[in-house]
Nucleic acid binder design. Sequence first.
DNA 1: ACTCTGGGTTCTGTTTCAGAACTCACTCGT
DNA 2: ACGAGTGAGTTCTGAAACAGAACCCAGAGT
Lengths: 160, 160
Amino acid sequence: MTAGDTPEAIDRTLRVIGDRWSILIVRAALRGIRRFDDFCDDLGIARPILTQRLRRLVSNGVMIKVPYQEHPLRHEYRLTDAGIALSPVLVALVRWSEEHADGTPSPTALVHAPCGTELEQAFWCRRCRTTFGPAAIRGVERAAGDVGSSKDVPDGSPAH
Amino acid sequence: MTAGDTPEAIDRTLRVIGDRWSILIVRAALRGIRRFDDFCDDLGIARPILTQRLRRLVSNGVMIKVPYQEHPLRHEYRLTDAGIALSPVLVALVRWSEEHADGTPSPTALVHAPCGTELEQAFWCRRCRTTFGPAAIRGVERAAGDVGSSKDVPDGSPAH
DNA sequence: ACTCTGGGTTCTGTTTCAGAACTCACTCGT
DNA sequence: ACGAGTGAGTTCTGAAACAGAACCCAGAGT
């Protein structure tokens, strides 16, 4: 690998949510689904796999299992903060799907709640107070010794 | 699936890039890697899988295979615009990895090229000219007939 | 007692993943 | 002209992951 990039960290993440279902489960959870059978119905996922995925998500801190009633003791699954923090990933994925994988835009648009305008996703520089696209990204070494080695990112592609 | 929403589109996308390798391949490509063996070495991916993944990425328009020399006819793989457009997904993933999956921040920081400040990723409303977080997202029906049913996305805050 | 509901587990295939080792076309140095 | 080297793959093989029916079990409702 080119010196010190991090396939490790991202790789570990992909081991948690990098399968066909986990992200869809998180998505469903963001839509308010909490119960085993509802996940099943909503996603059309096989039960054994759902069991397994939920367990994995829970053990990785993406979701928690909380009882919602005693007696016929029942649990539901909710996103933790870490789980909610996945929404940028999801949004990025959904938008990419709409724009590049698919002709048909999804029937559900994501909007800025206060004003109802369809949202965009952008990179943001807090110093310049500006948004920008992929072309303006650069990767730099963060480690102690040598700072400044910039070596990420593509050529072309105008920002949006 | 419960009417309306689009597991289909996102599902199709996940079939393309929803495995442990595809995203890492795109990431490597964004770092400038183009050749078969370089992907191999960089990622530590098994060759047959790389072959398959590249083929799939090409056939789905994420990458293209272009000859970079005749004679010993050789090809390299480059991202298309659609491929470059995946960078928000990647960035979101990397940032989540750093913040939630891992203690150690990655050695490579992503910065805003012009000024060198570490970038953030945010949702952006062009009407309000403001950035905001997941809590301010709402999903609304886009289709003709029944508009108004809003039912996506996080209700303020599940767990905690 | 008997059926329903929620939340699972078992069992049995079928794809997909992964890795070593091999191939093949071509070029280069000698 | 001959062996070594390269780039880009294939073929085998075994290990996981996925998928679907069917089964289980504790309580509750009737």
